[in-house]
Design a protein around this nucleic acid. Structure first.
Lengths: 193, 193
DNA sequence: GTTCCTTCCGAACGATCGTTAGCGTATCCA
DNA sequence: TGGATACGCTAACGATCGTTCGGAAGGAAC
């Protein structure tokens, strides 16, 4: 639809990801758009709006990626696909993903709370996969849902710091998945603590 | 030694971690210290100095924690201890750790390059553990050093976002380690891709 | 042909930013 | 007694911040 508004939002996401929210001024955005800074207020009401919209788009992208995973697969396969999906979003939409993961904390007022709820919901979708996997007998019965979720989401979330934009992430996700599922120790080694 | 200078550095690390470097003003620091903002320049030459010092202290803490690990242990044990060490630093010195992990990118000029070298060196110490573990036969021969390092460091680095200050992290590290070493799938399950 | 919507301009606003300067103390060592 | 050292003050600087305002060009809608 609106061409200039979306252009501005996209640019804002990029600069926020590059220099941080507080490190990016309205003047910076205007200059990058080739426009006087006052002109931006034809499209937005405040700088916060831009942060909020970038964050929302990130949230949408991450959830949509999970939505595309079929329900009827084994939990282990869904975990693998979820990891792929998350990393794919990070690589393909690095800017909004970065804002969603790192810059969200500069949201003010209700929007900060809204974000936190959004994120909790997202993490819960991951945790559910591990719980199901355990309950359905696909995973070890003594596996720690919480720790496993934390481990996977940490790897997935930290990726924005080093993944180059547009990288092929499916193979990387599978390598993470392989370690996660089978461990790094030889099979024959007795398990000890 | 100097009481006020270190107090300022510590405070700066806390506020930088809380509100971000650009989100924290010299005035904020002065107010928190109960002092006029001009007075801070008796201790520092610029705001950048504070960021640099917080980052350096973080680097020192992380490296020192690794240094304390004995050389003569099996690689797997050293990996476990390294994970414990990193998480312990995050929990015990959450402020400087956060600056080291997240706010370093606002360093300017040579200091940014210096940080990157520092961090590469730190990551290399982790990678070496996995390489040795594989070469010494403690780990599966087909394990992917790079992916394993990335996975562990991701989990370790992301922890600053959710670890409460002063949390007991040794047990958490062991839970991560258990997953990492043995995987989450049942032992008897045939390995498939 | 008037009205609306989008887009932008130039100029200005009050506030806040990081930093500097000159001047006071108090403490402690020579 | 003198001089350095540490720590603080007040006041101001130039710059930049996010935001507001009135006006105006251009096209689309009715």
């Amino acid at each position: 639809m609106a061409t200039r508004k979306t252009e501005l939002t996209r640019l804002a996401a990029r600069l926020f990801a590059e220099r941080g929210y507080h490190g990016t001024s309205i003047g910076d955005l205007a200059k990058a758009l080739g426009v006087q800074k006052g002109s931006l207020y034809a499209h937005i009401e405040s700088k916060q709006d831009l942060l909020y919209e970038a964050m929302s788009e990130g949230a949408r992208a991450f959830h949509a990626a999970l939505d595309a995973i079929p329900d009827d697969l084994p939990a282990t396969q869904r975990i693998r696909l979820a990891l792929q999906a998350h990393l794919r979003v990070v690589a393909e939409q690095l800017d909004v993903a970065t804002v969603f993961i790192r810059e969200w904390r500069y949201l003010e007022g209700d929007r900060a709370a809204e974000f936190l709820a959004e994120r909790r919901r997202y993490e819960e979708r991951f945790r559910a996969l591990f719980r199901e996997g355990r309950e359905l007998g696909e995973l070890r019965t003594d596996v720690d849902d919480q720790a496993a979720t934390l481990l996977v989401l940490s790897a997935a979330n930290w990726a924005y710091t080093w993944l180059p934009e547009g990288a092929d992430t499916d193979e990387l996700a599978d390598r993470f998945y392989a370690i996660l599922v089978d461990g790094i120790r030889g099979y024959s080694t007795p398990v000890q603590r």
